[in-house]
Design a protein around this nucleic acid. Structure first.
Lengths: 120, 120
DNA sequence: CGCATATTCAACCAACTGGTTGACGATGCC
DNA sequence: GGCATCGTCAACCAGTTGGTTGAATATGCG
C-alpha cells in the first residue's frame, strides 16, 4: 500500500466517510458534532475520522477538550487529476456536484432521524 | 452499499486494478494479456477484472475463446465530479496525469520483471 | 476537589478482501 | 476426436475492515 492514491481512494470508498466530508464542506466541526447525525457509536466515527486523517483528507486539531475537524481538500488533487486523465471530463460542473451531494448527503440512510420503524 | 460512488471508489483503491486501467488506456486487451505483467495468478486477475466490471469501469466482451477488456471511463465521471466539487481543481492537467502514470504505472512493484532479490 | 464532557483505546466479532490451488467448461486447431 | 488454450468457479486461507462495548485519559467547571 505504498502508493499515495491508495489511502485516499479507500477512504472515499465508504459512504459514511464521504458524508462526513460533505458535512465538513460547510464548516469545521467537533468530533461529537460530526457523530451526532449518524446511527453509530462515537468510537466508530472516531475511527472513520482517523482513516480520513491518515489519508490527509482532514486534519484534527485539539483546542481545549474538543478536537476540531477541518477539511483538507488538497488531498483529493492527486486522485482527481488521475481520474480526469482517463475521461477528459469537463471541468467543475457544480450543478452536477450539487446533485451528488443531494443524492447521497447526510440525510440519506445514515442519519438517526430517518430511521423510524421500517413499515408505516 | 447502495450508493453508486461506492463500487467505483473501492475498485480504484487497489493499485493492481489501477494499473490494469492504465494498461487499458493504451488498448483493449485479452484477460491473459492483462495478467501477463503481474506476479499473481490468472484467477486473481480475473477477480480484479470482475470488480472493475461490476463498478462499470470496464466491459468484457467474449469473441471466440478470448474475452476482451475495454476501458469504460464514463464510470469515473460521477466520482470525478464529486471530488472536483471539493477542491475546485483546475481542469485536466495532463502533465500531472503523466507523472502519476509514470509513478505508479505497471512497471512499478507489481510486475514479475522487477522482482529480483530485494538487496543488490 | 469532584463531577461532567470529549475523545480515544483495547478487546472482541462478523463480514469482506485479495490471494492461492485444482477442477471445470468452452473454444480453436490438427 | 483429441489436445492445448482461455477463462471462470469453488473451496480455502490469512489479513483487513467496520462495527460493538467498556474502560481509560484529558480537559473544563462549580
Amino acid at each position: 500500500m505504498t502508493n499515495p492514491l491508495d489511502p485516499v481512494f479507500s477512504a472515499l470508498a465508504d459512504p459514511t466517510r464521504r458524508a462526513i466530508l460533505t458535512m465538513l464542506l460547510e464548516d469545521d466541526m467537533a468530533v461529537t458534532d460530526v457523530a451526532e447525525p449518524f446511527a453509530m457509536s462515537l468510537a466508530a466515527i472516531s475511527k472513520h475520522l482517523a482513516v480520513l486523517a491518515d489519508a490527509g483528507l482532514i486534519v484534527r486539531e485539539k483546542r481545549g477538550r474538543v478536537i476540531w475537524c477541518k477539511l483538507e481538500p488538497d488531498a483529493m488533487r492527486g486522485p482527481s487529476v488521475w481520474m480526469q486523465g482517463f475521461g477528459q471530463f469537463e471541468p467543475v460542473d457544480l450543478d452536477a456536484f450539487e446533485r451528488f451531494i443531494e443524492a447521497e448527503g447526510i440525510g440519506a440512510d445514515f442519519s438517526k432521524e430517518n430511521r423510524g420503524p421500517d413499515l408505516d
